[in-house]
Each structure stands twice: as C-alpha cells, then as structure tokens.
Amino acid sequence: MSKKWNIAIVGATGAVGAQMIECLEERDFPVGKIKYLASSRSAGEILEFKGKAVLVEELTHDSFDGIDIALFSAGGERSKEFCPSAAKAGAICIDNSSAWRMDADVPLVVPEVNAHAIAGYKKKGIIANPNCSTIQMVVALKPLHDHAQIKRIVVSTYQAVSGTGKKAIEELRVQVGELLNGRPANTEVYPHQIAFNCLPQIDSFCDNGYTKEEMKMVNETRKIMEADIKVTATAVRIPVFFGHSESINIETAKEISVATAMELIAAAPGCELVDDVAEGIYPMPVDAAGQDFVQVGRIRKDESIENGLNLWVVADNIRKGAATNAVQIAEILIEKYLK
C-alpha cells in the first residue's frame, strides 16, 4: 500500500482553499489525515473531503503537529506569521500568497517550467506558488523561450474577479443585478464599479506608477524562468467571474515562425493550443473555467519588429493559477523528495 500524507489546508473556507480540496480529491492525492484551518470567524464550520465531514479548526501556531504538507491560501500576513511555525513542526509549506515569492531561500515554482527548483525547499521548508497571471504566462512561454530565447515580454492582463476572492465574486453578481434593475451599484471590494466596467488597477500603486500586481509579473517571471528577460505589464480587472486572459507580445533572440510556435505549444506540458481563427476558435474564459490547461491562441507575427510574436493566453486563475499548481508541486514533492 502506497504511503499516505497528512495535509493541512490553511484558508480552507476561501475560494482557493475550496479549490485545493477539490483538486486533492480529483487528482486522488494520497491523503492520510486532512486538517482544515481558517480564522476564528470560520472555525466550527463543517466541510467535506471525499464525502466525509471535516471540522474547520482555528489556525494557531500549534496547528501543524503531525502534518507533512501544509497548503496555504490565507493571505500574505498569515503566511508570514504561520509558515515558519508549520515548517518548525516538520510540515513543508506550499504558499499561495506573495509573502515568500521573492525570498532568495524560497523556491518559486511552476512545475511545467522549473520543477527542479522544488529541491530548494529544504532551506526554509517553504515553496512559493507564483502569482496566478505569472503562472499561466510562463507555462505558455516556456517552450518558446527554450527554442528561441525570449528577450522581452509586453503583457496586458484581463483578470477575473475571483482573483480577489469570494467577496469580489459576490460584489460583481450583486452589481449586475442592481444595475439591470435600474438601481445604483454599491462598491466595497473594488474602488470603482466592476460590473460592465474595466479597472486598470490590481493591487496598490508603486512609486514607479506600476501596481504591485504588475511588478509581481516582472520579478516573478525572471525568477521562474531563470533569465534576465525584460518584462513590462499592465494588469486590468474585468467583469468576468473565472478565468484570466492575457495579451502577450514577445521578442526573441532568433526568429520563430508561427507554425513552429504552434507546434511547440501544442506539445508543451500544461498547454492546449486553441487556434483556428478561420472557424472563430480561440481561448476564452468561459471555456477555460473549470479545467487545468493553459489555453493559447491568436498566435501571429508581430510585424513591427524583426523577431516578434503575439499570443492570447487564458487559464482558470483559481485552478491552474493557484490550487492546481500548488497540488502539482505537492505531487512532485512526495514523488521525488519525500519518499
């Protein structure tokens, strides 16, 4: 009988936490004991794992005795506070927040791109899950970079409200109903109305005029790809529930044809080529939602530069952009490092 592992889900009652539970079930991860942890407000709730009731417990520094792997999705502050306690208790933390991503002693991992980096978990007992927009972009660009060496990336994102959490999903739903019935839309989660609107701000602004979300894409891409690629990003929130979309322009060191790019992406792990413009087929959030592939389409030459390509990339931000990526890391961890 194969070994089973004791798992803790930190932030189990949130949107990503719920998806982590679902991914563990779907992928038949060898779970022994499972523990659901959340804030005191959510403690006492009853969730399920494979049809069995699981009590949600309050997250404390003593929550991790006997836990092998802790999947964190409870925000940066809690990760900063509780990951060291979990690691000290012997649990390996896979953290979905931005708290540890740029720490030199913490690997930042997308399994299809830099699975080898997982080996660095031993330094602090922590592995960082990248930003959702970064994950889908590097999965799509990895095969192109290996073939032609990407020099520069210009990316604009069109991000679903689920990236902000359950309250944002509800805010969009309520705003749509209010506006369609001739009533004003109240805003609580976002600084402006999100229904029937686009907000060119995700997270707070930095001194350079970029948002923190945009700078995450710049810095995380370089760390994951292990290359000094020039990256510039614009991140936009749009009134879609699930699925982030990205318009990506790349400049490469050597020429890469559209046909070759399509072949490389079609064969790449984690990618799905969705590109038949003659038939009106291209990636869309409604199709990407609920599945784990990074869909890539609208591949075409950038005729304004010598070695340029344009791509349209879509993925489910809660699944591949967060939960699935974390569970994939855990799968590699137990297969190669925790036998």
Rank of each mutant, 00 (worst) to 15 (best):
G280P: 02
A195V: 09
T211S: 13
R298E: 00
K3Q: 10
T324L: 11
A12Y: 07
E171N: 12
K33M: 08
Y337V: 06
C206M: 13
E279Y: 07
I202W: 08
R237L: 15
T187L: 06
N129V: 09
E246L: 11
G75L: 01
K80Y: 10
T60V: 04
A268V: 09
V218I: 07
M1G: 13
M1L: 14
I153H: 03
C271Q: 03
M225Q: 03
K301S: 01
V176I: 15
I224M: 06
L24R: 04
D105I: 04
V286S: 08
Y121K: 05
E251I: 13
T232C: 11
C23I: 10
T211V: 09
A259T: 10
I238S: 02
I127V: 05
K50E: 15
A253V: 10
Q159K: 04
G280C: 00
A322Q: 03
F241C: 12
V231F: 05
S133G: 15
K166R: 11
S98N: 14
A233G: 10
V139I: 15
N249D: 14
G66Y: 03
S162Y: 07
D95P: 04
L37H: 02
L59T: 01
A227Y: 14
E77F: 07
E303Y: 08
L264K: 03
P30R: 09
N197E: 12
L273V: 01
G51I: 07
A235T: 14
I46K: 09
E214D: 09
R237P: 00
R319C: 13
T260M: 00
R300K: 15
I305F: 08
I229D: 00
S98E: 11
E246P: 06
K339S: 13
T234V: 12
N249A: 14
Y121R: 06
M215R: 14
K166Y: 10
I332A: 08
W5V: 10
K223P: 00
N307H: 13
S204Q: 15
I118M: 04
Q291P: 06
V109T: 11
A15I: 15
E246C: 05
K212P: 07
V161R: 00
A119L: 12
G76I: 02
K33S: 06
V56N: 06
L180R: 08
D68K: 03
T164Q: 10
R183M: 11
I153Y: 05
D228H: 10
V113M: 02
A115V: 11
K167E: 13
I334T: 06
M137W: 08
A86R: 01
Q19N: 14
A128G: 14
R319N: 13
E22L: 12
S156A: 05
D203V: 05
E171A: 07
E57T: 03
V176H: 10
T252V: 03
L311T: 02
S79G: 13
K4Q: 14
I329P: 08
D316I: 00
V16S: 07
L59W: 02
K142T: 05
A323C: 01
S2D: 12
V327H: 07
I202V: 13
R183S: 12
E214A: 13
D276F: 00
M20Y: 07
I9G: 00
Q291S: 12
V16F: 08
P239F: 02
A160P: 07
I250M: 03
S79D: 11
E272T: 06
D316L: 01
E112H: 01
E48G: 13
Q193I: 12
E220C: 03
I194V: 15
A268P: 06
G14R: 04
